[in-house]
Amino acid sequence: MQKGDESMRPYRLAVCEDDKIVRDGICTFCGQTLTEEKISHEVAGFPSAEALEQAIKQGGQKFDLLILDILLEKKTGMELALDIRKWDKKVSILFITGYEEYIGKGYDVHAVHFLLKPLNWTKLKQILLEDWKKRHRPDTLVLQKGRSSLRIPLQEILYAEADKNHAVRFILTEGEEKFPISLSELEQMEPGGQLIRCHNSYLVNMDHVRRLEKQDFFLDNGKKVPVSRKYLKQCQEKILSYFTQ
């Protein structure tokens, strides 16, 4: 099992694949992808449908995304998914298979996607981040430092700016908030990399970015946030990745 930052509820994945090399490869790739995106996570691998089902039913493990091979040795991934849907309507299911004829059957369990073997790793990354963003991403930023605490819906944050008094100003869709924390500390506490560093003094909320022009982010309300040369390349990469998810 691999873990990320424990400051928030982790995004939990189960990979059920009877080929150990393939299973370990998927687990490693998903863990690395989520770590790069600063998404707190746990990834667990299972060699059979029975092992995963036992972990859920008897072990009490809960998952946000199940990556299931369809053709397992005994109980198939499709049969497992049908059983799971009897008690869990929310968990996301991604099937992997080497046979296209199984794709149509995924509608019965509302699978988020099918991936054909050999796996397209770029597509897997896209599906993984889309699922986290649409279904499981926290919608509230919770800050705690000493006796101070603050809760802000992430969607209300346009950007965060370093304040001269060792604090951060949150510029919101309506008004602003201030909290005694550094931008570096905020980067570590923010769930999922939605606020990205674009300047020594600024973090911007990617959900409100509409375009990057020269050295400015233009937001959906018409405001601009500066992008320094130091962070320009990573901002260009981030906006491309974010917009294609």
Results as ranks from 00 to 15, higher is better:
Glu79Pro: 09
Thr140Glu: 13
Gly25His: 10
Thr28Glu: 12
Glu73Val: 08
Glu17Arg: 08
Glu73Met: 11
Asp139Lys: 15
Ile196Tyr: 09
Gln144Asp: 04
Asn165Pro: 03
Lys38Ala: 11
Ile39Val: 13
Gly60Leu: 10
Ile181Leu: 15
Glu50Cys: 09
His113Glu: 15
Lys90Val: 12
Leu143Met: 12
Ile103Arg: 12
Lys90Met: 10
Phe179Trp: 07
Gln234Gly: 01
Gln234Glu: 15
Thr244Pro: 02
Arg211Phe: 02
Pro226Met: 01
Leu13Glu: 07
Ser48Met: 03
Ile103Ser: 04
Ile127Ser: 03
Glu79Met: 07
Gln188Tyr: 11
Ile127Tyr: 14
Thr173Lys: 13
Cys30Gln: 05
Gly222Val: 12
Gly60Tyr: 07
Asp83Cys: 09
His199Met: 07
Asn200Ile: 14
Glu213Lys: 12
Phe29Leu: 06
Gly146Cys: 06
Leu34Thr: 00
Gln155Ala: 13
Gln194Ala: 07
Leu219Ser: 08
Leu219Glu: 08
Phe114Gln: 00
Gly59Met: 02
Glu156Ile: 00
Phe243Ser: 14
Asp207Met: 12
Glu174Leu: 09
Asp108Lys: 15
Ser184His: 14
Asn165Asp: 13
Thr97Val: 00
Pro226Gly: 01
Cys198Ala: 05
Arg197Val: 01
Asp207Trp: 07
Gln155Phe: 09
Lys62Ser: 15
Ile84Asn: 06
Ile171Ala: 06
Gly4Pro: 00
Lys3Met: 11
Leu80Asn: 04
Asp207Val: 03
Arg137Tyr: 04
Val204Gly: 02
Phe46Lys: 07
Lys89Gln: 14
Arg151Gly: 05
Glu37Gln: 14
Leu195Val: 06
Leu71Gly: 13
Asn221Met: 02
Asn200Met: 11
Lys233Arg: 12
Ile21Trp: 07
Phe29Val: 01
Glu42Lys: 01
Arg229Val: 07
Leu116Glu: 08
Glu6Trp: 08
Cys27Arg: 08
Leu219Thr: 09
Lys214Thr: 06
Gln2Asn: 11
Arg151Cys: 13
Glu177Gly: 01
Lys3Asn: 08
Leu94Met: 02
Asp139Glu: 15
Ser228Trp: 05
Ser92Met: 06
Leu82Lys: 14
Met1Asp: 06
Met78Phe: 14
Leu119Cys: 00
Lys20Val: 12
Thr122Val: 07
Ser148Gln: 14
Trp132Asp: 07
Cys27Gly: 03
Leu116Asn: 04
Ile96Gly: 01
Trp121Lys: 08
Lys105Ala: 13
Glu213Thr: 11
Val15Glu: 02
Ile70Val: 15
